[in-house]
Design a protein around this nucleic acid. Structure first.
Lengths: 232, 232
DNA sequence: CCAAAAGTGTTACCATTACACCCATGA
DNA sequence: TCATGGGTGTAATGGTAACACTTTTGG
């Protein structure tokens, strides 16, 4: 008898994570936004792709559970991890009431190559997602929206990059995430005005044109506004 | 043995709501931001004030549970209800692991007088909060931050007001929530430019000065951007 | 007529945009 | 020397802020 819940049984609590990374740009291609999914090995939704996650252990913090399942499935450590939303519609999973606290994470491109990828864990392009289990497709879409919104008023783009980076690399992150071209001149000025960039004095050579300056993320100014959720 | 969790017992799921309203401005005083709290009638935290809420029934939607407990404790129907954050630190409640999905709600001033208020349910001024149970003080502070942020890029101020309102009333909402004075001339233009106001053609008489125009919230334009979380 | 708030006009300022142009390097 | 992005200059635009001013009511 599906959609029927045992009134004595409480809702079960799960934690899942939407993980974003940029594909390392092999060749001259534009990098794309990618995310890892795991294949479900049991019912319900057996064989379908789903977000990494699991049941919440009684003695583990929510964010801790998100970070752990992320590490277990992908082998990665996120540079950014934040709670996204809690999904709890009564019928989102058959047979059983499941409430999922969903996090979203950013990992930087260099790490993606090191990431686990086998027949049960695969990275998918943002616009080549397979059919997903439960309501996970809606969750991903919601996370994408949040990523795009937050990129414009926050510094999260840095989480996709390494220690130092050029302005073109930073701009590429914005362009891929926002899905639109940005004026290099204006982008530069906007970033410089934000006060979050530090010129390392070094330059990146090996390009076939003028060597671009390498910047670092200003960790001091990063702490200033603290617009993020508290993590209890 | 406090702070010790039974590994066999799962975390329990609660839903709570931070409810905001503006005090009806009796006399010439400036209205203030108020919220109802309930007195805890059992341990833990017996006697302390806490957010309205309760355990999540297995067959009730998260938002439904928030709306229900809100109605049960205050007798009010919210004009606005949105998920705030899920709090789940391991030690936020003694003896037992509790994860709380917290919502926040706005109700309009006219209704506050109708609201329940007895020895176990009381409205408190934003800056005269009593000592609270659990981490509820931190939750309220977080909700206040969200309210202030969202007021500036959204239309939620209308949720505090009745069907029609003057620009001065709308401005008063902003001033109380944001805790700062706003230029009446510029506020008017900003609101008119937003395209969310409809002049009803009527005017409010009975004041000791020029009668102000009455406006209505444009419900059509309200639906346009849909920046809100999906409610699964 | 006066007080008080409604409502209008004007100017300055600041961030964003579009786009022209020069610079430095590898090939 | 040329192609290619790096990097600078500049003028137009549009929204916000400050504040002077006019209007309309009740008392």
């Amino acid at each position: 008898m599906p959609q029927q819940h045992d009134p004595a049984a409480p809702a079960r609590l799960a934690v899942s994570t939407v993980i974003f990374a940029l594909s390392p740009d092999e060749g001259a291609e534009r990098p794309s936004l990618r995310l890892p999914l795991v294949r479900r090995l049991r019912e319900p939704g057996l064989g379908r792709w789903a977000l990494p996650g699991g049941w919440l252990p009684v003695d583990e913090a929510l964010e801790g559970a998100a970070a752990r399942t992320l590490a277990e499935t992908t082998g990665l450590t996120p540079k950014y991890l934040e709670q996204l939303y809690t999904f709890g519609a009564v019928d989102r999973s058959p047979d059983e009431r499941v409430v999922s606290v969903v996090y979203w994470a950013l990992v930087h491109s260099d790490e993606v190559e090191r990431a686990v990828s086998d027949e049960n864990v695969q990275w998918f392009d943002e616009d080549e997602l397979p059919e997903l289990a439960f309501d996970h497709r809606a969750i991903i879409d919601y996370a994408l929206g949040r990523l795009r919104t937050k990129l414009e008023y926050s510094r999260i783009a840095h989480a996709f990059l390494g220690e130092t980076f050029t302005l073109a690399e930073l701009r590429a992150v914005h362009e891929v995430v926002l899905r639109k071209r940005l004026d290099p001149a204006n982008f530069r000025r906007t970033m410089e005005a934000s006060g979050t960039l530090v010129d390392t004095g070094e330059r990146l050579s090996g390009t076939r044109h003028r060597p671009p300056a390498l910047y670092r993320f200003d960790t001091a100014s990063a702490m200033a506004p603290a617009p993020d959720p508290i993590h209890l």
